[in-house]
């Protein structure tokens, strides 16, 4: 055994190269970048730490408990009795239905529009820079617009109600799904595509026969994931006037019916829980 590791000081151990001497030959492990990156992250963190206001920070926990008490105390609120509270909750089913319809239609429409755009945006299929770069730029531009802003703009065009909600969910889903889709298209096995082209298939035929089967399960998984994100986002959309359960929340808040707020929150909690469970079950089946 005439192999050894060159001895070094502590500083060298952290930042330096490491030399192994094996049978008289030297092999050097290059300098690791990790310590440097850790140092930079630490410096950035310390720099931003000073912007967190700590001086006038007083946590009003008592206010929190007051609010929660109001949310679950029908006698002091709008519904007056627990019976009233539960029947209000039962009435929320229409808003929940509206939310789900809005989200489903919006996500579906977004997915349908995303498909052709992602094919053009995928470098390995379109192969032309002047084709895929502008599409990517456009998609990235769409993605910078927050959903709430989309909803407000949509309301200018379609008025209040479910329609602006559907429009903004469509646009949001389009941006998200296009980006996710073209990234998977770029990782598929191109061998079958080449084989199809050699058979005399045109690009569209080759894409359908060779790439779509590889894409389909992943695409469905992403679709369901987007649906789940949209259910949660739709609450905020309703809050700015796009209908659904969010509109109920807005209504209850602005009238200070805190017991109704509590009912909406409970319904939302279970809705999101059920959808999450359902989607992760389906996604598990697809994988």
């Amino acid at each position: 055994m005439n192999s050894k590791v060159e001895s070094r000081s502590l500083l060298q151990k952290i930042f330096g190269k490491k030399s192994y001497i094996v049978n008289g030959k030297t092999i050097v492990k290059p300098r690791s970048k990790t310590p440097l990156i850790v140092l930079i992250c630490l410096a950035v963190f310390i720099f931003f730490w000073q912007f967190i206001p700590t001086k006038n920070l007083t946590l009003k926990f008592d206010q929190l408990t007051v609010l929660i008490k109001k949310m679950f105390d029908p006698s002091s609120g709008k519904s007056q009795t627990w019976d009233g509270w539960f029947s209000y909750m039962w009435e929320l089913r229409r808003s929940v239905g509206e939310t789900l319809k809005m989200v489903l239609i919006g996500t579906l429409a977004g997915a349908v529009i995303a498909l052709p755009f992602s094919i053009i945006a995928a470098q390995n299929v379109s192969r032309k820079v002047w084709l895929y770069q502008p599409v990517r730029l456009f998609v990235n531009f769409i993605r910078t617009i927050p959903t709430v802003v989309l909803a407000v703009v949509a309301m200018f065009f379609c008025g209040l109600g479910a329609l602006p909600g559907i429009v903004s969910i469509t646009i949001f889903s389009f941006g998200l799904l296009t980006k996710m889709l073209y990234e998977i298209i770029e990782t598929v096995d191109m061998g079958p595509f080449e084989a199809l082209e050699a058979n005399g298939a045109n690009k569209l035929q080759a894409f359908k026969m060779a790439i779509v089967p590889q894409l389909l399960p992943v695409f469905l998984g992403y679709f369901i994931y987007t649906f789940e994100i949209n259910v949660r986002a739709s609450v905020i959309l309703g809050y700015v006037g796009a209908g659904g359960i969010g509109a109920e929340l807005d209504n209850a808040m602005s009238n200070m019916y805190y017991d109704h707020v509590g009912a909406v929150v409970v319904v939302l909690f279970f809705l999101v829980l059920i959808i999450q469970g359902l989607t992760s079950y389906i996604r598990g089946k697809l994988a």
């Binding site: 079958p192 080449e194 082209e197 050699a198 060779a210």
Partner: peptide
């Protein structure tokens, strides 16, 4: 191309 079959080392099946 329709009249020319092609076989690959890695089969290139879907």
């Amino acid at each position: 191309r329709r009249n020319i079959g092609m076989i690959f080392q890695s089969f290139n099946l879907v």
